[in-house]
């Protein structure tokens, strides 16, 4: 479903701030893979997700989603294939627009937007149904402005928007990191449900090792712009946090010590 081949990206090349964020990354996801991504700060996790989403062009390598080479497409064109949820709950929704207007925007992702009415009656019924699944009572506030919602509610709504039309690929960039533990748990549960129900191919970046182990069928670890560990299936289900810490120290060596606190 996703094939990344030798993708590199260097920020601020030729300056003192030069940073090789991705260093010939290779990664292949099969349909239905739910991959959790861990790694220290600056390991390249978010950069890889941004490269896939097309936030900026990569320096080298290719990105193929569902057989389509998207390397040369900007983010808004790749949006037809990709659903995204961001770390900041403010990022994924339009605050001054109504809940149903936001959903209507998501319902038209990847389609031509013409002069037909922006939200139809038939759609509203579908929105109501889908909002009920979130179990947040949003179905009764469909004409409320999204700016009135809490961070958790907005993140849940963003998740619904990202998956409203089944995406070929779902990118979750630390989407629970800005929420309180209880809300984070709820949003993660909702994520699990949606991914399972629609059998979505998913990449989830997280700083929480327990979450990385508890969710998904595959776990990758990144360091210095590379995938340094790829654990799947049986092996992953037996994984413990200690294993992971041990594995990481083995592969990453000395540097790991400074990252331990962040990863734990």
């Amino acid at each position: 479903m996703l094939t990344i081949t030798d993708v590199s990206k260097t920020f601020n090349p030729g300056t003192v701030n030069e940073k090789r964020a991705l260093n010939k990354v290779n990664l292949t996801l099969n349909e239905g893979d739910f991959v959790t991504v861990i790694g220290g700060n600056g390991a390249g996790k978010s950069t890889m997700l941004n490269a896939i989403a097309g936030v900026w062009p990569v320096d080298e390598g290719s990105i193929v989603i569902d057989g389509e080479d998207v390397t040369g497409l900007p983010d808004y064109k790749r949006a037809a294939l990709i659903g995204r949820v961001f770390q900041d709950p403010m990022t994924g929704t339009a605050a001054t627009m109504e809940i149903e207007e936001n959903l209507a925007l998501a319902a038209r992702r990847g389609k031509i937007r013409g002069l037909k009415w922006g939200v139809t009656k038939a759609e509203k019924a579908v929105f109501r149904e889908k909002l009920q699944i979130l179990n947040l009572g949003l179905e009764d506030r469909m004409t409320a402005k999204v700016g009135l919602l809490s961070g958790g509610q907005r993140q849940a709504l963003t998740l619904l928007m990202a998956t409203f039309q089944k995406p070929k690929l779902l990118l979750l960039d630390e989407h629970t990191a800005a929420l309180d533990p209880k809300t984070a748990e709820k949003v993660l549960e909702a994520t699990e449900r949606v991914v399972q129900r629609d059998n979505l191919t998913t990449l989830m970046v997280t700083h929480n090792m327990k979450d990385a182990i508890a969710h998904g069928n595959r776990l990758i670890m990144m360091n210095e712009g590379k995938v340094i560990l790829d654990i799947r299936g049986e092996e992953k289900s037996k994984l413990t946090v200690e294993d992971l810490l041990h594995q990481f120290s083995k592969v990453a060596g000395e540097e790991f010590v400074s990252d331990k606190a962040i990863l734990g």
Binding site: F86, A94, M97, A104, G114, W117, G118
Partner: peptide, 26 residues
């Protein structure tokens, strides 16, 4: 116009450009 698909996309652009791009709006 601002109630149509195109008009909504224009309003979304003004409100949240990053979200708009993620929803496929140029």
């Amino acid at each position: 116009f601002f109630g149509t698909e195109m008009g909504s996309a224009l309003r979304a652009t003004g409100c949240n450009p990053q979200m708009s791009k993620a929803q496929g709006i140029n």
